[in-house]
Design a binder for these strands. Structure first.
Length: 468
RNA sequence: GGUGGGGUGGCCGAGAGGCGAGGCAACGGCCUGCAAAGCCGUGUACGCGGGUUCGAAUCCCGUCCCCACCUCCA
C-alpha cells in the first residue's frame, strides 16, 4: 500500500518512495511574516498538516520543516507603518500565525526555523555557488550577489517556462548580467536599518528572497529530501529559483514538489487592492475552529477553493452531522469497538490525498451507523462510531476531540446552564405526560428563542446550543 | 503572448468509457402529541458543436468562456 502524490515537476502522480525507508522529510514554505494570516495561509498549512497526518498514519516517521521568513523587503517596508522595528513587527506577525495555526488544529512542525537564524548557512551556500561559477558579485558597488541563470541549463525546469519570459524583479536596475538572474545576497542600502544587515564576504547586506529556503531545507533535511510543498503561486519564481540554486550547489534537493491550490473569495482573487482579504481572525470569529478547519480542508488540496457566503454554514452542518452521530452512538450505548480505518477511506487518501472521497466514506459510515442505531444493533453502531472517529481524527475534524475545547476556560457556567435547562426539560416532560402540549411547546419555544434546541430521543430529551 | 489549471444538478464538491461519490438545500414517506434528529425515497448534472463506440461527463476534432503564474504573494 503506497501513497501517490502529484509532483509538479514531472506533472504526474508519483509513488512516494522515501529517501530513507520508513522516514519522510517534508519542507513547506511557511509565511513571510509581513502581515496578518489570511484564509489562504490557513488553507496551505492545512494541506500539509493533512499530508503529514496521513503519512504518519501510514507509519512513516515524519520530519516536517516549515520555515518563517522573517527578513525580507516587505517586512522592512511594513514595519515603519506599524511603528515598529522590523524584527519586532516580524515577530508579532509570526505569533499571529502560530495562534491561527494552533486554533484550527495544525500540528506543530517538527521544527520551525527562522531565516534570520540561518544567515551563515545561506552564506555558505552562496559561496558554493560562486565557487562553482553559478553566482557572481555585482559589477557595481552594490554588494549584491546574483545567481547566474545562464550558467545553469536546467533553469526553468520546474515550471517549463520559455527563457524570455523569465524575468526576475529582484535587484531591478542593479548590476546583473541578465534580467533572469536573481539576487542571492542584497548589499546594504543607505536608509535601511543597520539591524537588517549581516557581514559577508561580499560586504554587509541581507539575504535575497529564495536562498533562505534552500539553506534551511538542507540544514534540517539534508541535501536530498522527500517532499517540498508550498502554494501554487510560489512555483515561479520562488521554487524555480530554490531548485536552481540548490541543485547548482550540488544538492539533489526535493524529490517531489507538491503545490496546494489557492483560495478565491466570492470567485475573485484575494488581494489587498481589492480589499477582499479574508483573514484568519474573520473566519475564527464567524465559526468554531473545527468548522473553519472542515471548510478549508474538505476540498481537494490541489483545487482552487472559493470562499463564499455560506461556506462556513455548510461546513457547520457537515460537522454537526458527524457530531450528532457520535453523541447519539454514545447516548444509545453503542458498543465500544476497535476497528481498522476503512479501506475505501485509506485508498482515497493514498491516491494523492483524496479528501473529498475520504469524506464521502466518512459520511456513508455515519449513515450506516445511524441505521444500526435505528435497528438497535449496538455492535454495528459501535464499529461505525469507532471508524468515524478514526477517519475524522486523521483529517483533524473530529468534533469530539478534546483539543477543540482545550484552552476554553471552564468557569462553571456550563454546569449552571445545564442545571437550568434540565429543570425546564423536566417541567416540559411533566406537561407532556399530562398531554398539555401547549405548555410543553411553550418551554421548547422559549428555549429555542434563547438558542437552545431540544431533541426528544428514545432515551430522553437532549439539549444543545443551536449549531453545536 | 508563454506556462499551468478549470467549466459537473438550486449551491458546494468528487469522478474520468458502462450500476448517477458525498455534503447542503428542496420535495414525498416512516418515526414523533407536534417538532427536531434519524432513516427511506425523489433530480433525464456534466460549457457548446460534431465524431468514435453497443454505450461518453469521461476518448477524438473543433469551438466558446473562466482562473492562476509569468511582478510581491499560501
Amino acid at each position: 500500500m503506497t501513497v501517490r502524490l502529484y509532483d509538479t515537476r514531472s506533472q504526474a502522480l508519483r509513488e512516494f518512495d522515501p529517501v530513507v525507508p520508513g522516514r519522510v522529510g517534508i519542507y513547506v514554505c511557511g509565511p513571510t511574516v509581513q502581515s496578518s494570516p489570511h484564509i489562504g495561509h490557513l488553507r496551505s498549512a492545512l494541506s500539509y498538516d493533512v499530508l503529514r497526518r496521513w503519512l504518519a498514519h501510514r507509519g512513516l516517521a515524519v520530519t516536517l520543516i516549515r520555515n518563517v521568513t522573517d527578513i525580507d523587503d516587505k517586512i522592512l517596508d511594513a514595519a515603519p507603518r506599524s511603528g515598529s522595528e522590523w524584527w519586532a513587527h516580524a515577530y508579532r506577525v509570526e505569533l499571529e500565525f502560530a495562534a491561527a495555526y494552533r486554533a484550527i488544529g495544525v500540528q506543530e512542525p517538527t521544527y520551525e526555523p527562522r531565516a534570520t537564524g540561518h544567515i551563515g548557512g545561506m552564506l555558505d551556500l552562496i559561496a558554493r555557488l560562486v565557487d562553482a561559477g553559478h553566482a557572481y558579485p555585482a559589477t557595481d558597488d552594490s554588494g549584491d550577489v546574483y545567481f547566474d541563470t545562464a550558467s545553469w541549463p536546467d533553469y526553468g525546469s520546474l515550471t517549463r517556462q520559455s527563457g524570455d519570459a523569465l524575468v526576475s524583479g529582484d535587484g531591478e536596475g542593479r548590476a546583473r548580467r541578465s534580467p533572469r538572474d536573481f539576487a542571492l545576497w542584497k548589499g546594504h542600502k543607505s536608509g535601511e536599518p543597520e539591524s537588517a544587515a549581516w557581514p559577508s564576504p561580499w560586504g554587509r547586506g541581507r539575504p535575497g528572497w529564495h536562498i533562505e529556503c534552500s539553506a534551511m531545507a538542507e540544514r534540517y533535511l539534508g541535501t536530498e529530501f522527500d517532499i517540498h510543498g508550498g502554494g501554487l503561486d510560489l512555483r515561479f519564481p520562488h521554487h524555480e529559483n530554490e531548485l536552481a540554486q540548490s541543485t547548482a550547489a550540488g544538492s539533489p534537493f526535493a524529490r517531489l514538489w507538491v503545490h496546494n491550490g489557492l483560495v478565491t473569495v466570492g470567485g475573485q482573487k484575494m488581494s489587498k487592492s481589492l480589499g477582499n482579504s479574508v483573514f484568519a481572525a474573520d473566519l475564527l470569529g464567524a465559526a468554531r475552529p473545527v468548522v473553519v478547519r472542515y471548510a478549508l480542508a474538505a476540498a481537494h488540496y490541489r483545487s482552487d477553493l472559493d470562499h463564499h457566503a455560506g461556506a462556513l454554514v455548510e461546513a457547520e452542518e457537515a460537522v454537526s452531522r458527524i457530531e450528532r452521530f457520535l453523541v447519539r452512538a454514545e447516548d444509545e450505548g453503542a458498543t465500544p469497538a476497535v476497528v481498522p480505518i476503512p479501506h475505501a477511506f485509506a485508498a482515497a487518501m493514498d491516491d494523492d490525498l483524496g479528501v473529498p472521497q475520504a469524506l464521502a466514506v466518512l459520511h456513508e459510515t455515519i449513515r450506516r451507523g445511524n441505521q444500526a442505531l435505528d435497528a438497535g444493533e449496538l455492535d454495528l453502531a459501535g464499529e461505525a462510531a469507532a471508524a468515524v472517529r478514526l477517519m475524522a481524527g486523521v483529517l483533524g475534524v473530529d468534533p469530539l476531540d478534546p483539543a477543540w475545547s482545550a484552552g476554553v476556560r471552564e468557569d462553571g457556567s456550563a454546569e449552571a446552564l445545564n442545571a437550568l435547562v434540565e429543570r425546564l426539560i423536566a417541567e416540559r416532560q411533566t406537561a407532556r405526560e399530562s398531554r398539555d402540549w401547549a405548555a410543553a411547546d411553550r418551554v421548547r419555544d422559549e428555549l429555542a428563542a434563547a438558542g437552545i434546541v431540544l431533541t426528544d430521543t428514545g432515551g430522553g430529551t437532549r439539549w444543545s446550543i443551536d449549531g453545536r
